[in-house]
Amino acid sequence: MNTHDSTEKFRIDKWLFAARFFKTRSLAADAIGRGRVYLNEVRIKPAKLVAVGDMLNIRIGHDHYEIEILALSNKRGSASLAQQLYCETEASRQRREIMAAQFKMQPESFYSKGRPTKRDRREIEYFKTKT
């Protein structure tokens, strides 16, 4: 973790990769380009520099994170080190827990397991021919 100087800045895509929000730096840059990451409520580009104290809004799938940058790093480390780079707001954490509970209560889709098996296809064909 690099915290040498409070004026030191790093690229947002490198920081998101180091903070373990995305598996690769290119995925982070792609999410930024698609407008899924906002810095201080402003849409940005992957080369934007971040500083300590900046607020980020990140959407990853159904999850929405509101975080404050506490430290800067451009090297990916362990998960425990990555969690020290930011602080998630309490409202964001509660909203994600509510969304997780709602998704858990939804019934599982028939096709959520992937491609149907041979037996599933036969049952589908059976129902199609009966109606």
Rank of each mutant, 00 (worst) to 15 (best):
E125A: 15
R115S: 04
L81R: 14
S92L: 00
T7F: 01
E90K: 14
S6L: 10
E123Y: 04
M99Y: 11
V42W: 02
R20W: 09
M1N: 01
R36E: 05
T24Y: 02
A18D: 01
I58H: 04
G61T: 13
I67F: 04
V52N: 02
I67P: 08
E123R: 10
F17V: 07
E108V: 12
P107V: 11
G114K: 00
R25C: 07
Q84K: 15
A51Q: 13
G77L: 03
P107E: 07
S109T: 12
L72R: 03
G61V: 09
T3Q: 09
N2Q: 12
P116I: 10
Y65N: 09
L72M: 05
Q106P: 01
Y86R: 06
I98K: 14
T129G: 03
K104Y: 11
K113R: 13
L70V: 11
E68M: 09
R76H: 04
S109W: 10
N57V: 13
W15H: 09
L56V: 08
V50R: 06
P116K: 12
G114T: 06
Y65T: 05
A47V: 07
T7P: 09
N74P: 03
D120M: 14
A51G: 12
Q84M: 13
G77R: 07
K128G: 04
M55L: 07
G33W: 01
Q102K: 15
R20Q: 12
A91H: 09
K48P: 07
E41C: 06
S112C: 11
